[in-house]
Design a binder for these strands. Structure first.
Lengths: 137, 137
DNA sequence: TTTGCTGCAAATCCTTTGCAGAGGT
DNA sequence: ACCTCTGCAAAGGATTTGCAGCAAA
């Protein structure tokens, strides 16, 4: 565990914003100004390989990282691409249910919700109201 | 609907392998040798925008496309990255269940299973047997 | 001393875009 | 003629990699 790897892990654990590699680079750079992007990528790969963080693939093109390694789900804002954690139990064992419908051996699943975040909802309402000259309250 | 767009759609509907843009390019090229990769990307974007096909994001880095537009799920092989359709009903309305756990407005969700496909299972067993000099039956 | 990790820069991969010309209505 | 689409080639963004030096065991 090098200093660089430690700082990356610490910075990632500090936030709940699911930053991209580039955003993590900026965060880490404040503490280690000479760190390189390559090191960020290499360590994010190592850390997610060893299960200390999670790499989040789905949705948009660029990958995001999650400092929490425990099982939880996410919801992505369709408009601004922001990701938020969701701690919720679907109440069904999807993995065992799906076994009858596939000839793959089932290991797990990824469940990502899609929606609109409060900020984007607000700004689109504001936009509508402005367009129609209506009060915003 | 240009000839190019039509051929792309036809080729995609022929298979159930969820090809990448590049693989679709190769398929289409057999019928339209002068087609360009840019045209493939542009039309895949248009077709998925109009709901005639689906763009599949999650999992690996490169995007895959699905000629079936009706609602179904997928399972991805961890080893070879192959995708297969799963037609199965989780039996719960996940969208309404999750509403209590988020301040986003919920629109939908993506559910992707992860597993090992029959081929990879077979070859890893073969590998194990070979390594240990055991019979493969 | 050996092994693994770093910073740097170049390379790679996938995808998007600008542009001039072709095609269809 | 008009508008959309195409092929081509170049640009773009995100990520990976080669390499020589550095750091810690």
């Amino acid at each position: 565990m090098t200093r660089q790897r430690m700082v990356i892990l610490e910075e990632l654990r500090k936030v709940n914003t699911h930053p991209s590699a580039d955003e993590i680079y900026e965060m880490v750079r404040k503490r280690l100004p000479r760190v390189s992007l390559g090191t960020i990528y290499r360590n994010l790969e190592i850390l997610s390989g060893s299960g200390e963080i999670q790499k989040l693939d789905s949705g948009s093109s660029l990958k995001r990282f999650d400092g929490r390694a425990d099982c939880h789900h996410h919801i992505r804002c369709e408009r601004c691409d922001r990701l938020a954690d969701i701690f919720f139990d679907p109440g069904v064992d999807l993995n065992s249910r799906v076994r009858d419908f596939t000839d793959f051996s089932v290991i797990g699943h990824k469940l990502e919700f899609v929606g609109v975040c409060p900020d984007c909802r607000r700004s689109s309402e504001a936009g509508l109201h402005a367009a129609r000259n209506l009060p915003t309250d």
